[in-house]
């Protein structure tokens, strides 16, 4: 029961993007389409789960004072792994996400969960927490990406449904801010 709660909280109640307002750089930066948002979200989920599990495993071996640097090295390793894997196996997606893959390392969500959850809980619940938070993040990014893609290029996951240019501003930088603003307002309403 508790684990189920740990898993689902990331989607609505403690959604990292809409409620906690963490990791906004990649949220705004890569969500020009739903597929980019999903890819970025899943990459972050991988790093979150990996670092959460490892941190929970080794938490007792790490002296308190070097806790944060150790966590950062662990996170950076997982980021590099996903970076290499994506470059090799999904080059097109890797290219459109670009700089934001290595930048997962400074995503506040990842370090935040390692520090706030994994360093205090068991391996299994840390895994669930990482998975829930990560998928919640992926959900938020996909949603924002879908909204921007539908309005901005009249297509969804690459399938065009109206064959003209969309409302361009939504795929440009300002559209990211506008889209996120209204989604946050909407989520606030739902949470009430």
């Amino acid at each position: 029961m508790n684990n189920l709660k740990n898993f689902t909280k990331g989607f609505i109640k403690e959604n990292p993007v809409f409620i906690l307002l963490l990791g906004l750089c990649p949220t705004l930066g890569v969500t020009t389409s739903a597929i980019n948002g999903l890819g970025m979200g899943l990459a972050t989920t991988f790093v979150l789960v990996g670092s959460n599990v490892v941190v929970a495993l080794v938490k007792k071996l790490i002296p308190d004072k070097v806790r944060i640097p150790s966590f950062i090295v662990i996170i950076a390793s997982f980021v590099t792994i996903i970076d290499l894997v994506m470059a090799g196996y999904v080059p097109a997606l890797y290219e459109s996400l670009g700089l934001f893959i290595p930048l997962i390392v400074v995503n506040c969500i990842v370090l935040g969960r390692a520090e706030a959850f994994a360093s205090k809980n068991t391996v299994f619940s840390s895994l669930i927490d990482g998975l829930g938070m990560g998928l919640g993040f992926a959900f938020a990014l996909t949603l924002l990406g879908a909204v921007r893609e539908i309005l901005g290029s009249y297509s969804i996951f690459g399938y065009k449904f109206i064959n003209t240019d969309g409302i361009l501003v939504f795929v440009l930088a300002p559209g990211a801010f506008f889209g996120l603003a209204y989604l946050i307002a909407l989520m606030k309403k739902i949470n009430k």
Partner: peptide, 21 residues
């Protein structure tokens, strides 16, 4: 009320981004 705080700030950031374009 629904837009107060962060959403309003984000809309403003969007307008600022438009200006910078």
């Amino acid at each position: 009320k629904g837009m107060k705080g962060v959403p309003a700030a984000l809309v403003m950031a969007g307008i600022l981004a438009l200006a910078f374009m």
